[in-house]
Computed example of a mutant assay.
Amino acid sequence: MLASIFFALGGIGLALPIIPQVPFFLLAIFFASKASPKFHKWIQKQKIYQKIITPIKKSIKNKQKLSWIQLALVKLLGIKS
């Protein structure tokens, strides 16, 4: 339900340049991946996910080396080690 709402808000953001669309689409992807394991697996196979998120997941084991921005991103996306 939340994924649909944020996707609609992102679509409205595409039509109205005043409203930012990227945060709404990112939230839609986040909530859709939480609701659907199949969609979550598909997201994990994407090149951009593997390029950005996978190194963060690997470095979670040594949390002292993570910057606070990376740690916030990891917590926001709900990545589990």
Rank of each mutant, 00 (worst) to 15 (best):
A15N: 10
F31P: 01
P20L: 02
L9A: 12
Q21H: 06
K61P: 05
K61Q: 13
L71H: 11
K80N: 13
I12R: 06
K57F: 03
P37Q: 08
A28N: 03
G78F: 05
S4Y: 11
A35S: 14
P17E: 10
F30N: 04
K38G: 03
I69V: 13
M1G: 13
Y49V: 07
H40T: 08
I69F: 13
L26R: 06
L14V: 12
G78D: 01
P20W: 03
I5R: 12
Q64G: 10
L27I: 06
P17S: 13
I29E: 07
K63V: 02
S81N: 15
A8E: 14
G13M: 05
S33W: 00
F39G: 01
G78V: 05
S67P: 08
A3E: 06
I69N: 07
K47P: 06
A3V: 02
K34L: 09
K65E: 14
I29P: 00
G11T: 06
A32I: 01
A28F: 00
W42F: 08
I48S: 11
I52A: 02
L27Q: 11
L77E: 10
L27R: 12
V74P: 00
S59P: 06
F30A: 00
F6S: 12
K61E: 15
V22L: 10
A35P: 00
I53K: 03
Q44H: 09
I43T: 01
H40W: 06
K63M: 07
I79D: 12
S59E: 15
K58F: 10
L71G: 09
S33I: 00
V22M: 07
S36Y: 07
A15M: 11
S67A: 08
L2W: 08
V74D: 04
T54Y: 11
I48L: 11
K47N: 10
L73W: 03
I43M: 13
A3F: 08
S36G: 05
A15P: 01
K34E: 14
K58N: 15
S67E: 09
A35Y: 12
L73H: 00
L76P: 00
K80F: 04
W42P: 00
